[in-house]
Simulated assay, not measured.
Amino acid sequence: MLQNICVVLVNVSHPGNIGSVARAMKNMGLTRLVLVEPRAFPHNEANIRASGANDILEKAKIVATLENALVSCNLVFGTSARHRRISWPLLGLRQCGTKVVEEAASGTQIALVFGREDSGLTNKELQQCHYHVHIPSNPKFSSLNLGAAVQVVSCEVRIAWLIAQDQSSKLEKNEVASTKNSELATVDELERFYKHLEQTLVAIKFLKPEKPRYLMARLRCLYGRSSVSRTEINILRGILTETQKVVDSASRKRKD
């Protein structure tokens, strides 16, 4: 189950924090680490701070963008403490741990995404996440070290995992649901759908690029919480393709 979960770090500035994260992951039984454009890695400071979790650093995957990091993932949890205009599905730590374990148990590929030490994740990056996760720290001193943040979230995941081991009946239900959940659309498939959707909405003049009014962000939120399957994505993209054909045909007739 835990092998279906990866930790994604975006633009880490200090290599020591990568080592701290690796140690926190190994403490909680997580092994898959993905680094999005780290400023300095590999680095000796990361090895020192890993303190025995160097195997995780050695197997860490390095990519250029968050979109690349989420290829083949089905469900993405992004940590954020900032207020945003658009309401997004928000989970507390205990809810996050339970949700991650329930989904991972049925084969769903999970990503836990953590942002930059100084500024976290951008709004655009947060929109690539299905859920946002809030760590209820002291509001008067809410800033957490990156390694500590990963430790807290991964600890909740492990607690939920340990509870799940004692609930055999719940595991059996997850096995029945595994076929359906394994067919969920991946993040990269959803991204291609969103681009196709945006192009079509512009073509039918429902979306005005000069005045988008958060339309695509709201649609991302809608589809992101719907657990869209690959079959459903193909149906939706088929509808978009036929819509574009009608628009193109009408455009040619006007020109004639």
Rank of each mutant, 00 (worst) to 15 (best):
V157K: 02
R158E: 03
I159V: 12
A160Q: 05
A160P: 01
W161M: 04
W161C: 03
W161A: 01
W161Y: 12
I163D: 10
I163Y: 04
Q165C: 04
D166M: 00
D166P: 04
Q167L: 08
Q167A: 08
S168D: 11
S168C: 10
K170E: 09
L171C: 06
E172P: 00
K173S: 13
A177W: 09
A177C: 12
A177L: 15
A177P: 04
S178C: 10
S178A: 15
K180M: 12
E183R: 14
L184W: 01
L184F: 09
L184A: 04
A185Y: 04
A185K: 03
V187C: 10
E189S: 06
E191G: 05
F193A: 07
Y194V: 07
H196M: 08
H196Q: 14
H196N: 14
L197N: 02
E198K: 11
T200C: 13
V202W: 11
A203H: 02
F206Q: 05
L207W: 03
L207P: 00
L207I: 03
P209R: 06
P209M: 08
P209F: 07
E210C: 01
E210M: 03
E210T: 08
K211N: 10
K211P: 00
R213A: 12
R213L: 08
R213N: 14
Y214D: 13
Y214V: 00
Y214G: 02
Y214A: 11
M216W: 03
R218M: 06
R218P: 03
L219P: 00
L219V: 07
R220N: 04
C221Y: 00
C221W: 00
C221T: 10
L222P: 03
L222N: 10
Y223L: 11
Y223W: 15
G224S: 04
R225C: 05
R225M: 08
V228L: 13
